[in-house]
Measured scan of single mutants.
Amino acid sequence: SIVTKIISIVQERQNMDDGAPVKTRDIADAAGLSIYQVRLYLEQLHDVGVLEKVNAGKGVPGLWRLL
């Protein structure tokens, strides 16, 4: 499923980069989806406690990390 793919992308990127959070844009590119589509999935995963959003604010790139 797309959700499983997104989780594995975040996991893979974090492992490659010493646990650093992953940008929404990088996840979207790797999943082959638009940034808006991916954001909806990321928000859902956040709501159920799978991911945390590391930063927030208007015009700030979203950074995500697995919990």
Rank of each mutant, 00 (worst) to 15 (best):
D17F: 15
I35R: 04
T24G: 03
I6P: 00
W64C: 06
Y41R: 02
L67W: 09
H46E: 10
L67S: 13
P21T: 04
L42R: 00
D18P: 10
L33G: 01
E12G: 06
N15I: 12
V22Q: 05
A30G: 07
S34P: 14
L42V: 02
N15H: 10
Y36K: 14
V38N: 00
G49W: 02
L66A: 04
I27T: 01
R25M: 08
Y41Q: 02
A30N: 04
V50P: 03
Q44G: 07
I2K: 03
V38G: 03
N55W: 12
Y41V: 13
K5D: 04
P61F: 12
L45M: 06
G49I: 15
K23Q: 08
V50W: 05
G49R: 04
L67Y: 11
W64L: 01
L51K: 01
A31N: 01
E12K: 10
P21R: 03
V3P: 03
E43W: 10
L33P: 00
V22T: 04
A31K: 01
V3G: 04
L42K: 00
I35G: 03
Y36Q: 13
V22M: 07
A30C: 06
E43Q: 09
L66T: 07
K58H: 11
D29Y: 11
I2A: 04
E43H: 08
L67A: 15
R39L: 15
G59V: 04
Q14F: 05
V48Q: 14
L63F: 08
P61K: 11
S1L: 10
K58S: 11
A31E: 01
L33I: 08
I9L: 05
S8I: 09
G57E: 08
R13M: 11
L40W: 14
V54A: 04
W64Y: 02
P61V: 10
G62Y: 15
V22G: 00
Y41T: 04
T24M: 03
L42S: 00
V54F: 04
L45S: 00
L33M: 12
V60F: 11
G19V: 03
E12N: 10
M16R: 12
V38S: 03
D18Q: 11
L66M: 09
H46W: 12
D26G: 01
W64K: 03
L33Y: 03
A20G: 11
D29A: 12
E52C: 11
A30K: 06
H46K: 11
D47H: 14
Q44H: 15
H46C: 15
G62C: 15
D18V: 07
G57A: 07
R13Q: 07
T4W: 14
I9D: 00
V54C: 07
V50H: 03
S8V: 07
P61I: 10
L66F: 10
S34K: 06
I27V: 06
G62Q: 13
W64F: 01
I2D: 04
Q37R: 11
D17K: 13
I27R: 01
V48D: 13
V22D: 00
S8P: 00
Q44I: 14
I6L: 08
Q37I: 15
L42H: 00
G57Q: 07
A28E: 03
W64N: 02
N55M: 09
R39C: 13
I7R: 02
G57F: 05
V54M: 05
P21A: 13
S34Y: 04
R39I: 14
P61E: 15
K23V: 03
A56G: 12
T24K: 02
G57W: 05
E52D: 05
D17A: 15
K23E: 07
E12I: 11
V38E: 00
I35M: 12
L40Q: 10
E52I: 07
T4C: 15
I7F: 05
Y41A: 05
M16N: 10
V22Y: 01
N15W: 11
R13F: 12
L33V: 05
H46Y: 09
N15S: 12
A20V: 06
S34C: 08
L51W: 01
P61D: 15
V3L: 14
Y41N: 00
Y41S: 01
L40N: 07
V54L: 05
A28L: 02
K23I: 03
G19Q: 06
D18T: 07
S34V: 09
V10K: 00
M16L: 10
K23G: 09
E12R: 10
V60D: 14
Y41K: 02
K23T: 09
I35Y: 09
N15Y: 10
I27Q: 15
V22A: 04
L42I: 01
L51C: 02
D26H: 06
G19M: 06
Q11V: 09
L66R: 01
P21L: 07
K58A: 12
Y36A: 13
Q37K: 10
V48H: 12
D47P: 00
S8M: 13
A56Y: 09
V48P: 00
D29F: 11
H46N: 07
Q11I: 11
E12Y: 13
V10F: 15
T24I: 03
L51I: 08
I9N: 00
I9E: 01
I2W: 11
Y36H: 12
G32W: 04
V48E: 13
K58W: 03
L66K: 02
L66P: 03
D47L: 13
T4M: 13
A28V: 03
G62D: 15
N55Q: 09
I2C: 10
D17Q: 15
V10S: 00
M16C: 10
Q37G: 04
I27A: 00
I7H: 02
G57N: 06
E12D: 09
Y41P: 00
A28M: 03
N55T: 09
D47V: 13
L40V: 12
A31Y: 02
G49Y: 03
Q37H: 10
R25T: 09
V50D: 06
T4E: 12
R65E: 05
D18I: 07
I2T: 06
